[in-house]
């Protein structure tokens, strides 16, 4: 068996609650992401999706268990991954072009070169006209697109994305999903994609993982998405195969969402 690009081996993570108790967010997660795969993770709000990505990025250490990257145990930052955060993470004091080129600048790429490549990426996310704007002058959805360009411009094997498209309107969103699939198709990078939108998860991914409601969230089920590629994102959602998949995954997810509501944690 080939070595997975990213692997969670019996990973658990607890946090201290304000009351000083121990809250177990994730419990015994075992999950392997094959190299080149597009994996989507869905689960109720607060179940620990971001926490999982934080550990994959190496920003957070598991309470127990290990994260493996390309077979090696991860210690410190994951240098093989980019991470698009759920929150706004653009530097407010750099304009859009500088933000997009930041990864290049940090890697020592010359100014002119970094600018040219940033501009090319800005065109790809449809923001060529906003190169000299500061983040505060953009809409929430535009900031997300800048963040996408900022992440995609640097060449890493694994892309971690935390609800990247949830702030976008449906049209922009479909365009960005298309760009993401195109990028992934070109480069065969590994993508771990967190979303609360099951349709989006199925439309994009090879495999959808359902996490249970917290506390002690674990993997409820994994569903292979066998839809053909390339996929036509505009019409995919009405195809019978898509609808069947949606039904069977939703049956799992639905229960977790109900549990999560019942426990009053949302």
């Amino acid at each position: 068996m080939p070595i997975p690009a990213l692997e969670f081996v019996h990973v658990s993570r607890s946090f201290a609650t304000p009351a000083g108790r121990d809250y177990r967010a994730l419990d015994d997660i075992c999950l392997a992401v094959p190299a080149g795969a597009f994996l989507a993770i869905v689960g109720p709000s607060g179940c620990g999706k971001s926490t999982l990505l934080n550990m994959a990025a190496g920003l957070l250490a598991p309470t127990s268990g290990t994260v493996r990257v390309g077979g090696a145990e991860l210690a410190g930052l994951n240098r093989h991954a980019t991470y698009m955060f759920q929150q706004d993470a653009l530097l407010p004091w750099k304009d859009v072009r500088e933000n997009v080129g930041l990864g290049l600048t940090l890697a020592g790429v010359g100014r002119a070169d970094a600018q040219a490549r940033a501009d090319a990426w800005l065109a790809r996310v449809g923001l060529a006209a906003f190169a000299r704007h500061f983040p505060a002058q953009l809409s929430g959805g535009m900031r997300k697109r800048v963040a996408m360009a900022q992440n995609w411009i640097i060449d890493r094997d694994v892309l971690l994305m935390d609800e990247p498209f949830s702030a976008l309107d449906i049209h922009t969103r479909q365009r960005m999903e298309g760009e993401l699939l195109a990028l992934w198709g070109e480069s065969r990078r590994t993508i771990v994609f967190v979303t609360h939108d099951l349709e989006e998860a199925i439309a994009l991914a090879d495999e959808v993982v359902v996490l249970s409601a917290g506390p002690a969230s674990h993997v409820v089920s994994r569903h292979a998405v066998t839809l053909d590629r390339p996929r036509d994102l505009l019409d995919l959602r009405t195809e019978p195969a898509f609808v069947d998949l949606y039904r069977s995954i939703w049956a799992d997810l639905r229960q977790e969402v109900i549990k999560s509501h019942a426990s009053g944690r949302v």
Partner: peptide, 12 residues
């Protein structure tokens, strides 16, 4: 988040 993002992008 800004600090984490910059570190992920490769900042020393």
């Amino acid at each position: 988040v800004l600090v984490d993002n910059a570190r992920m992008l490769g900042a020393s």
